[in-house]
Each structure stands twice: as structure tokens, then as C-alpha cells.
Design a protein around this nucleic acid. Sequence first.
RNA 1: GCGGAUGUGGCGAAAUUGGUAGACGCACUAGACUUAGGAUCUAGCGCCGCGAGGCAUGGGGGUUCGAGUCCCUCCAUCCGCACCA
Length: 925
Amino acid sequence: MSNYDFRKIENKWQDRWKKDQTFRADNSSKKPKYYVLDMFPYPSGAGLHVGHPLGYIASDIVSRFKMNQGFNVLHPMGFDAFGLPAEQYAIQTGQHPAITTKNNIERYKDQMNKIGFAYDWSREVQTCDPAYYKWTQWIFMKLFDSWYERDADKARPIDALITILEKSGSERLNAVCDEGTDHLTAEQWNELTWEDQQKYLLKYRMAFLAETSVNWCAALGTVLSNDEVKDGYSERGGHPVERKKMMQWCLRITAYAERLIKGLDHLDWSEALKEIQRNWIGRSQGGELDFPIQGKEERIRVFTTRPDTIFGVTFMTLAPESEWVDKLTTPEQRTAVKQYVKEASNRSERDRLSEVKRVTGVFTGSYVLHPFTQKPLPIWVADYVLAGYGTGAVMAVPAHDTRDFAFAKKFNLPILKVIDGGPEDEAYDAKEGKAINSDFLNGLEVKEAIARAIERLEAQEIGIGKINYRIRDAIFTRQRYWGEPLPVYFKGEIPCLVSEKDLPLILPEVDKYLPTESGEPPLARAKNWVYKAEDGKEYPLEKSTMPGWAGSSWYFFRYMDADNAQAFCSKDAQAYWESVDLYIGGAEHATGHLLYARFWTKFLYDLGLINTDEPFKKLVNQGMIQGRSSLAYRITGTNKFVSANLKDQYETSPMHVDVSLVKDDVLDLEKFRKWRPDLAEADFITEGSKFYCGFEVEKMSKSRFNVVTPDDIIEGYGADTLRMYEMFLGPLEQSKPWNTNGIDGVFKFLNKVWRLFHNETGEWAVVDDSASPQELKSIHTAIKKVNEDLQRLAFNTPVSSLMICVNELTALKCRKRNILEILTVLLSPFAPHLAEELWECLGQKGTVARAPFPKHDESFLLESTYEYPVSVNGKLRTKMDLALDMSPGDIEKAVLDAEPVQKWLDGKTPKKVIVVPGKIVNIVV
RNA sequence: GCGGAUGUGGCGAAAUUGGUAGACGCACUAGACUUAGGAUCUAGCGCCGCGAGGCAUGGGGGUUCGAGUCCCUCCAUCCGCACCA
């Protein structure tokens, strides 16, 4: 019998869904809402391979399932369309990135539509669309016009800060601001010029301009954020990255550090992902304290998590970049220190990483005084101290810190033990034991000692309890072309926002996409890149653009109200859809997108623009699909190939073979010979009639000939098979290689479904007879399993349940309408095209996507008897058929009376009989 | 080093609360029907053993009548962070 005509069916229904706008979501509905979202893709030139749709298929199944359950489902798709690859391509070819991007998006949408996703395309967003980035710019303006008040623990409009400054100055202000910002009285503030007031406000704004140490990638001509750098190389392109001080726009994400950590507690995300975010934010609790400099008025402030070890401090260490270094170096030491600082600054990030174990440093010649003992302690410079963390200065406690210990050993500095315990010849850094040699801390456990030390520091005004975070403020500029322009112009040095009515600030045309000769970003090439301000004068506009993550930090709100020209998202729409109920995407965004999106959501919440402060309630990370390359073994130096299991008998070299020439690891020799001209004369040593290939799991790439596209699979088996097979591969979260072996099983299943509805000659064969108990049991088992499994987001097991059901119905030759109707609905989230076709053939009105999901009836699942396993002392002996409605007591009696059991007992009385109804009977002798 | 995860047949994998381990699928084997097909159906398929039976969920130990599941310990693989004071 021939296969069902999936091509015809799938085209028909894809057209129909498009024409009828079947999956359009309603912004006001009496039904409960459900928002399912995929991380929108960057449309790369390579198109989708078979790994990309894994998460999309899962989310599509959930959204269709929720539709069947009577939810008003929002399931949109869009494109994260600004980004480096299109721009790199533009630099090489001169083609405008907008054109490349548009073409790639077309390709992506075409590929997606072939898979039959239930997207509401009317809500599509593209981050490079001016109608969209207008609002990205608008949110940036809000960030610029806001500051963070610690007492209220939220961001507030900058006007409120100005009012406070005018009335009472900044002395009582508890706000997040740049390190080292001076306090002003109201009088001082009011006397400042407009320029100086603006400069001062910049220290408080949520979006601010600052000289910061950045990751500079010379090859890409731009700065990169920490999560865009991997092991000292750029994530995109793998170019070397160095540290450099530059003036940059930054967002004050650090103000939200605590809330970003706390918020994780209530999210339904994997513990692994939460942990990654917690580590990235890197909260550490401790204290800051001042060490007076010997012979000077000033004090050096350090951060420590171990104030309990204060009496074990034997020296101090400064980061080479610390501003103290220059001030404290004595004339005798100047040459050595200068030399050291220069070397340290020349060492790239990569060198530092590869030389972790090298201990280096130099003495400044100066001393600080111990705040309690007044003992002088030498001040050293060492590159194990990071300028960017804490205060850039460390109180070194060699006895209880591994790095301080190594340093002390190398430079022969004293080591003083102040916590009892641990070995003598290494640092004891566990937070356990009692304080010794520590004056007022003696005898206290570490935990108490920390508290007591902070108490004393505060009482004597030497220091203060403090929490430090590893996370840095997010750099928000890229010296690139293909991104959102910042809506900022400059009056001299003072950045000002363009007027809201002039948004969007459209990305200008440029002649080339490269930086200018003088090293300015590409936008410097734009003609007339100036802003005509309200005073009628023209001012230069900001030449950097926003980073790739700007547009993706709020797109999930735009879907709620995608066409709104008046607001980024209306309050009504947001109040209705609230936040994303289920978000599916890769774990690689853990420290980038997922953190920034949470940050922006909290910010928008603070300003009262939305009413949720977490964007993604539940998050699932789909695993990566790796490639599975096929290898043919060539006998070295010949044109002769040997089947995989015989290769050890020869000296061979493996060769990548296009996976389309291989099925179940068997190479199609005809196709192989035609594949490349040099292989036309190839010889083969086969196993029987078959030539087997070996395989290797590696990244999917063209050069390895292991790329499988959804289009390939759809061509051969159809979209429904692709969808089901991707789910059947294993748990969604798990990474796994793509292996087309086994797809036949799913394809056969769908054909079996087709044959359930049709007779041997392909005619419609559904009958109206009433169903038998067996048939009812089979279908209700499937309802129960599919329902339960989808509820807990397991996608592989329901496919199995459907297979079992169809096998049983086939064996029963069941063609009964009421059974098959249910089956069709159960199937519809997985294989929507086939289900839709069968639904129509069944004469049902409307689309199967809106059919109510069936509920199972427990009474069909019960049987009158059950085969109980009977075990003696935990070992299985036999099975006995017993009535299901028997009480545990009756079962016990029946089992003990049975002849074989009497034989095992051999006259002995059992100590215990355990009956688990429906499960097992265990006799303990 | 710190943190997280995973480990079950030839392969992908099931086993939601401790209760017949290996469902379902692939591959493989045998058979049926066949004017050969990459179709369909039936049966078999963890390991050892002719058999009864024994052994099996990374290794070792423990709790329990009973452990893939709970506890301890060790090993392996993958991922994240990594001079963060």
C-alpha cells in the first residue's frame, strides 16, 4: 500500500491556516490566557538546520494543546534582526545589511511555515524595523531620564532627583551612583552651571556615559560585553579581545543586582540556570574598612568577606591599575613599580588567563597601619588584584586565603594564623573554626567573629558592613553600523535626548560600513548626522549604536500589542497578557539576554509602565542538537574504501561523507560515486552487500557534510513526521546528536493512522458503530497519558503513547468514528496537518486546533481482574490473577491459600504479608 | 578549585509518588503475503545457561519485605564560572 499524501495535505492546510488567520490571538477574551514564547532567532544566512526548530516544535505543541484546552493562546514569532554577521557581510560585499537581513528573514519564515507552526504572524516583530526600534529608543530615553533610589528600592524619574537636589542637596540621598561621587548641598547644586548640573546628574542616571574599562575587539572594531567574550576571544568570529579604557554608554544594571538575585526564587526555571545567573551576579557579603596610610592623612579602603581575619592581615595589595599606586610609590621603588605596572597593562586578558599560577608583584615602599593594632603593613602591587572588583585593594591574610598565601610565600612576607584548624603548609580558607591571636575576637566561631568584627568596625567608624556584586554595569554602545542609533545628541560634552516626537531616530545611510580613518564608528560617515534641537541649532548626534541585546530585552511585551503606534505596549494589553507563561530557548542566553530582559522588565515596572516585574514565569532550555557526521574509511593512499567494521585490518584515513548519501549508516555506493568526480572510480570492501560508515558527533557544519535541514526531512517524510520525530528523539532539555536513523518508525506510525481511517484500497472506511470496552480502554489510556505528559512538558512519551494506541486499534481493526475523533484531537498538537485533514474528512466543523481536548474516563481503564506479581522475600516467584475489587485482606487470604504458595511456605507461617493493591503481593518468611 | 547536570540493551530511550526494569521506536533475526517493495503483517530480540535458574540500571557500601528511584562514598563524562579578596 502506498504512503499517505503528506505533501498535498500539508500544503493545503498551511494555505488554509494562512488564509483563515486561524492562529490570530485575541487581546480580549473570556477564555483564560496563555502566552507561549520562543526565543526569537537571529536570521543568519545559513538558514535553519534541523536543530533550530526543536524548541519551536515543543512550544508549538504546547500552544496547540492549550488551544485545545480552551485557552486564548498567544504564540508569536519574530526576528532579532540587528547584529554582526549581516554587517560583516556588508563590509565584504557592500550590500546593505537591511537587504541581507530581509532576505534571510524571508528564508526563515518560509522554512518555519513549512513546519506548520501555529504562529500569529500578525504580531511579528523585527528589531531592525524603525516602527519597533522607535520604542527601543524610547525605553533608552526612559533609562536616561531615571535614577535609582535605594530607600524606595526602585528607579524613579530624574525630575524627582532634581527636586531633591534643589531642596536638600544630595547629603541625605540614598541613591545608586558612580563610585566616588561627591555630595552637594542644595546651595552648591543651585549654584552649579547647567553643564555642571548635567555632568552631576549623569552620575545618577540609569543610562550614563562613563569612562570604563571595556573589552575591545580590534578586528570587529567594537567593544563587546562580558558575555560576548569567551576565553579572551570574541564569541562571534573568534577574534582576540583586549581590555581598554573608553568612554561608553552604560546601563546601571548593578542597581538591580539584589532584585535580580531575589527574583529568581519565585521563577519556575531550572536550578542550573538560576545558579548560572546567581554566579554571574556574584553576590558576596562582607565589609569595607579603611587602613590609614602611614605618614599621610588618607586612608585606603578595602573590601573583604572575612572581617573575622582582620588580625591576620600582614600586608596590603593593590591592583596595578589602582590610582593609589602612583601616590604611594616611594622614590626608591618608582622604577620597579613603573616597570611592573607597564608589564601588567601590556599583558592581554588571554595571557593573564593562561598564567594564573604565576605569582608576581612589587613593593611600593609605603605602609598602611593596622586599624586595631596600628602595626605598619607593607603595601604591594600585584596583578592578582582586580581593579574592577571591590575597591581594587585587598587586605592580605595569607594564613586564610590561597592567593595571599602564595604571594606571601613568594615574597617572604609573614603569615599569621588567626583561625584555629587546617594544615600548616597551606592556606586554611574554610569558614570553620575558632578565632585565635585576635584580641576581642578570640574564641569566637567564624560566623560570630564576622558579625562582631563588623560591629566593632562600625562602632569605631573604621568600616561598614557591605555587600559586593561581581556583575558590572552593562556597556550599551557598539562602534558598529547595524544597530539602533542612540537618541542622543551633544551640546559640547553634555549628552541630551532628542525630543520624543522625533522618534524613531532613523539609522542613516553610509557609503561604507567600516570605521572612519580617524577610528570613529561608521555612523561618522553619515551625511548630516546632526540633530536640530528646539533652540534651532544643529548638534552632533551620538555615533555609536546600541548592542544586539537592546531589541531583545523587551520584545516579549511588543508581541502583546505589536501594532501600537502610541506606546511600546498598551497597559491594557500588558495587563491582559501579563507575562510569558512558558519561554523556550537555549541556555546560552543565561547571562546575556535572560538577565537584560529581567533588568528591563524590572525597570519598566518601577516606572509603572507595566505591572509585572518578571518577564518569564517558566523557562525551559532545549538541548543543543549536534551534528552526526558520517565517515568513510579510505585505505590510505588509494581510492579504495573499507566498511567500518573491517577498517582495523587496514591502514585507513577517515573521510567525511555527505550524510544524505547514508541511511542507517549504510552508504549508497551509486550516489557516492556520483558525489564527486574523483570518487567515480572508487573501490569498496563491503560487509556482505553493505558498506557501513562510521560516525562522529560534532558541530553541524557545511564542511563536515553533516547539515540536515528541516526542508530535507519535510521533502522526504513531511512536516508532521519531522515534528513528531524531533519530539521522539528524547527529553527536550537534553543535548543530542541528530540522527535520521529511526525516523521511519514515526513515518510508519503516521501512515498507520491514515490506514486506520481508510481501507486497503484507500477508501474512507470510518463506521458509526459503538465502541467496544477494549477500544475504549485503549483510547482512554492514550488520553490520560498524553494529557499528563504534556502537562509536565514531556514530549517524547506522549508520542509513544499514541503509537501504542494506534497499534492496538489497528490490531482490533477499529474504524469507529467516536474513537477516531478522539484520536484525531490527541494527534493534532503533534501532527497538525494530518489531524486537520482527518478532522475535515470526519465531517467536523471548524479547525481541529479549536476542538476541545478530550478528557479520559477512569471507568474504561479499570479491569475486573489484575495479574498480581507474587514475591517471596522480595524475590519474584509467580503471577496470580485476582479480582481488582478485592480488599487487601481478601487478596492476602487468596494468595496464601493458593497451592504453589503453600508449597513454598512448606508448612511455615509467613512473618508478614505486604499487599500493594494493583501492584504486588510480597510474602516475608 | 567552586557550582550545576548526567551515567539504564547494539542504538535513541521509558519507568510522575520506592512495587513485574528495558514501555515505545530503530537496527537485527526468522517467518507470512507477494508479477521484488525503502510496502504490510506475525514472532523473537539485556547478559550467562540446553534447561531450571542465575546475573543485570557507572563502581562500592547502607536503609527497606522490596532500590534505576532514598542515604553515604568513589569514578567517568558534559556544561557554567574562575586570581571576585
